[in-house]
């Protein structure tokens, strides 16, 4: 069931939601969270489609906030709110309201969203594009327990990562981080199998893909070893090579779907590491609603402390938010990493 409301208010939308729900006879409270998607018209369709797929795992009320661009000064002073209320089969499993904001109300989107939040239930805000630099202090972000950004979609992903680290508030997360969950679990499982000590790591992937940096920072943060970030043609992440005292462990994925895991002294194994679509990522992100401490720790390691093979220059400037022990640890193994560089280059394609 789909209803269009033109020049409306949040209270009319609320009434329509109750009416629609009664008309189709489904109760509201199976819904476990409110997902707020803040986007522009261009990305709204894809984002909503992803959210609607994700709602099969997490029944939710989805509020899509579309900020319309006003072309003339007259449009900017006039304020209008249009809504499309979808319940039942048109809205995945849950309810969807597409809110189109025109004119002045664009700057006051939180006033529209606040009355439409489900009682008590957690709120997640997701910016598929154009995420604010400080999500927790964004008026919409402030309503939420979790704030999902996507550095993959921005102009300068690596720079943006540094900004995210500066503004990090518990509850922040990034889809670039979610993308590497299978990699992380595979690498962790691989290391669990062997009793070797990792001495250096190389993460290889396409340029301008912040997932590579995040994976590198995670490894550097957890293993306390120097990590090199090198570039390849993609797609996405292509390989992680770990040098251990009992030989290399390599996870290599050249085609974006099937990877090979090779551990010294063990047969090579094929591992499914498919690049996942946004719906799966969002569904995974919604599984846990408490702050992601591992992400925070990896992010705060600092992009500029990663070693680079030269084609992409590292961000400049000293970072101050870095905890002291890690800083000390990073200095010591630096020479070792350079010593291993030739080995790594040879392994690269």
């Amino acid at each position: 069931m789909k209803t269009d409301l033109t020049d409306t208010t949040a209270s009319k939308i609320n009434k329509e939601l109750v009416r629609g729900r009664r008309a189709i006879g489904t109760p509201a409270v199976g819904m476990v969270l409110t997902l707020v998607i803040v986007t522009d018209e261009e990305n709204a369709y894809d984002a909503l489609k992803a959210a609607s797929d994700a709602s099969r795992e997490h029944p939710s009320r989805t509020l899509v906030v579309i900020k319309r661009v006003s072309r003339s000064p007259r449009d900017r002073t006039q304020s209008r709110l249009d809504a499309e209320v979808r319940v039942g089969a048109d809205a995945g499993t849950g309810e969807t309201v597409v809110l189109r904001l025109h004119g002045e109300v664009v700057d006051h989107a939180q006033s529209v969203v606040l009355p439409l939040l489900l009682p008590d239930a957690p709120v997640v805000v997701w910016w598929p594009v154009n995420a604010p630099l400080d999500p927790a202090n964004d008026p919409l972000g402030a309503l939420a327990q979790r704030r999902v950004t996507d550095t993959y979609a921005c102009e300068q992903p690596v720079k943006e990562l540094a900004a995210r680290a500066d503004a990090y508030t518990p509850g922040d997360t990034d889809l670039s981080w979610t993308r590497i969950t299978p990699w992380r679990s595979m690498l962790a499982a691989a290391l669990d199998q062997v009793a070797c000590e990792v001495q250096g790591v190389e993460v290889e992937g396409e340029e301008f893909n912040p997932s590579c940096e995040l994976l590198a920072m995670w490894l550097a943060d957890r293993l306390d070893v120097p990590v090199r970030r090198s570039h390849s043609a993609g797609p996405g992440l292509t390989a992680v090579r770990m040098d251990t005292d009992c030989g290399p462990i390599v996870l290599d994925r050249a085609d974006g779907s099937l990877a090979t895991l090779s551990i010294q002294g063990q047969p090579k194994r094929a591992v499914a590491l498919k690049r996942r679509d946004t719906a799966e990522l969002i569904a995974e992100e919604l599984r846990r609603l408490d702050p992601d401490d591992t992400y925070a720790s990896a992010l705060r390691y600092g992009v500029e402390r990663l070693k680079s093979d030269g084609s992409g220059s590292p961000a400049k400037g000293e970072r101050e938010a870095v905890p002291a022990p890690v800083e000390a640890a990073a200095k010591a193994p630096a020479d070792r990493a350079t010593a291993q560089a030739p080995v790594n280059e040879a392994a690269a394609k």
């Binding site: 609320n14 009434k15 109750v18 009664r22 109760p27 509201a28 409270v29 199976g30 476990v32 009682p119 008590d120 239930a121 599984r287 846990r288 609603l289």
Partner: peptide, 30 residues
């Protein structure tokens, strides 16, 4: 509005790990 009664309690989130989250049970007059 939407007269009724909601009961909120924790329930295990499906999956391999033990994670407990609030869910609601609802009675709506309508």
């Amino acid at each position: 509005p939407d007269e009724g009664v909601t009961v909120r309690f924790g329930s295990k989130v499906p999956g391999t790990s033990m994670e407990i989250r609030d869910v609601s049970m609802d009675f709506a007059y309508g």
